[in-house]
Write a protein that binds this DNA or RNA. Structure first.
Lengths: 335, 335
DNA sequence: CTCCTTTGTGTAATCGATTACATTTTAAAA
DNA sequence: TTTTAAAATGTAATCGATTACACAAAGGAG
């Protein structure tokens, strides 16, 4: 049926070992012989059986990513597309492929499952909380992995993160620059590294300005950083507190904040400047367009993938923090 | 090192065949024996080696999706996240996994590659043009596949599509309903089924209204249905033609159209109602919020996955067309 | 021309599961 | 109790690659 290495060997009039050496570019093959083999491969349209290779070499050429079963939660990561794309581009160029699984409802930890079955050689995990047990599982099972973000209380690990602290500073400083004095900060969920670092940035910016920061101005979303929550928290805050600018830890939430402000009769930008975080495509499309901290999501994916591949190849690797930048748009423009 | 079926057999004091029978729920195992085996599996924390199973059974439990190497093109499909999620949820529940590859720059057709290597048992392909050669490749190589969309000139195949014709009708009819007489239609790229069907819907709505439709009012995007193109085409049309409403074949493009209209001093909704297509999250977040045709993208992914799995199991399957609905928002509200 | 090294090639074991077939045990029927 | 069928289990071949090891060919040194 399907053509196998034996068939190629027969056609090229060599042994299977030689064919294998050609396929895997091992060297020690006479150029003439190599040519014969390559011709046979082309002629027979041969593709090496991946399972056989995996079984023998104990490697799958797959890199795993596990996503949430909960769609609403999942789409509150609007940058997922770029992230996936970044990883996939790098992996495909290196002859790896990306394997996506969903956390199943039934108990078994899908992280362990794909890893231990040998479906993947390594994993990239994101949306990781402080003390996240998944990291311990992965460590215990010995599979190489790269973490997106910088959770604490999980020991050592290799990560790729963006410079959330600088991002928090940039955003806050910019709001000061356009004249704000009391900045409401709608932050992500507690227990996430990004939440912590962005708060640090927010605080540092206050220090730099010599302004005492008011804890009460910092709000945390319960779980999903989505539009609804941004809207709700902003409305609530409008009713209960005094502020003259908003830093929102996520563009999706920021659109909710914009809606709440405009609804209240205030003008975003003129009355209440708003800065978001992420710079997803959406940010430039809302009205007013959103000033935000641009995260190099595509690069995060690419970097994570290449670090992981290097780990698999036994190279020494280091965690990386990618820098962010402020993109100024209409939402912080004073009319 | 890693524990294998032999170790389980030894621990449970049975043969490997019995263990295998338990794992694969073959029956013909005494309940008592089964219990021993299950205990051994748990005790040793055993996971069957996936490559070995694949090699032996000639199946990989992987379903492939190939995405574009070009990020800009790729993110002009803003519904990709939901689509992937839908597929992944279904697949993971059935113990399959999703394999994502990127079309590499070097020549080899990645569709064939993953299929012929046996990395996947089936494929789901999207963004398919009329006469798309990929369909012929897949057919020739014999791998089961499901197409998202309904391209022509490619012979028979199983597909999942949304009812784009009805969508086109709904959108156009709604514009008539709010009083439009000359509707600019910014359609997707030529050579795509969705483009064709939506045009049919647009034409039918005209017929229903007894209005002669003007070919010149139908514009096609060159390649990417993105914001920039929506903006450019709208601007161009404002300068050169007469129209009082716009139907845009894609929400991303529609945001560009909105921007162009507002920029010209006209009011979206009041002066120029606009209807989009897709109902991506963005649609409800722009200002004015976008009336659009909702596509059940998540269901498309789920349906495609389950059809494909049924194909793999030898069941008889049928193509499906999922229905769409109109979501009315501010962009067609006459102030 | 012999010896030694290097290069090129082949043989066969191996990876860890599944499963056809053989065999044993158990249950039912006579 | 014997016979027969059904149920439970075991043995070993198999999937298709990689690769250790053996060996042959070729080239270089003396």
């Amino acid at each position: 049926m399907t053509v196998k290495i034996k068939d190629v060997a027969k056609t090229a009039n060599v042994s299977v070992a030689t064919v294998s050496r050609v396929i895997n570019a091992f060297g020690n093959v006479k150029p003439e012989t190599e040519k014969k083999v390559l011709e046979a491969i082309k002629e027979l349209n041969y593709f090496p059986n991946h399972s056989a290779k995996s079984l023998r070499t104990n490697s799958s050429d797959g890199i795993g990513v596990v996503i949430s079963h909960d769609l609403d939660y999942f789409i509150s990561f609007p940058y997922f597309v770029e992230f996936i794309h970044g990883m996939s581009v790098v992996l495909s160029d290196l002859n790896y492929h990306l394997v996506i699984s969903t956390a199943k409802k039934n108990g078994i930890n899908p992280y362990l499952e794909v890893a231990k079955k040998g479906i993947v050689d390594g994993m990239i995990i994101f949306d990781v909380k402080d003390g996240d047990e998944r990291i311990f599982s992965l460590k215990k099972c010995g599979i190489p992995f790269v973490v997106i973000g910088r959770p604490k209380d999980v020991g050592d690990y290799i990560f790729v993160d963006t410079d959330n602290e600088s991002g928090g500073m940039l955003a806050t400083q910019h709001l000061f620059d356009v004249g704000c004095k009391k900045i409401l900060f709608i932050n992500g969920p507690k227990g996430h590294a990004a939440t912590r670092f962005r708060l640090n940035g927010y605080i540092k910016a206050h220090k730099n300005m010599g302004i005492r920061y008011d804890e009460k101005l910092v709000k945390y979303v319960e779980k999903n950083s989505d539009r609804e929550n941004g809207y709700a928290i902003t409305r609530e805050s409008l009713a209960s507190m005094d502020f003259d600018g908003i830093f929102v830890s996520g563009d999706l939430m920021a659109t909710g904040a914009i809606a709440a402000i405009e609804e209240s009769g205030l003008k975003v930008g003129k009355d209440i400047p708003i800065v978001g975080f992420d710079d997803v495509p959406l940010a430039s499309m809302v009205n007013p367009s959103l000033t935000t901290v641009k995260q190099p999501i595509h690069d995060v994916g690419k970097t994570a993938a290449s670090i992981l591949i290097n780990m698999l190849n036994g190279k020494k690797v280091e965690s990386q923090i990618l820098s962010v930048s402020l993109v100024k748009r209409a939402s912080t423009f004073r009319k």
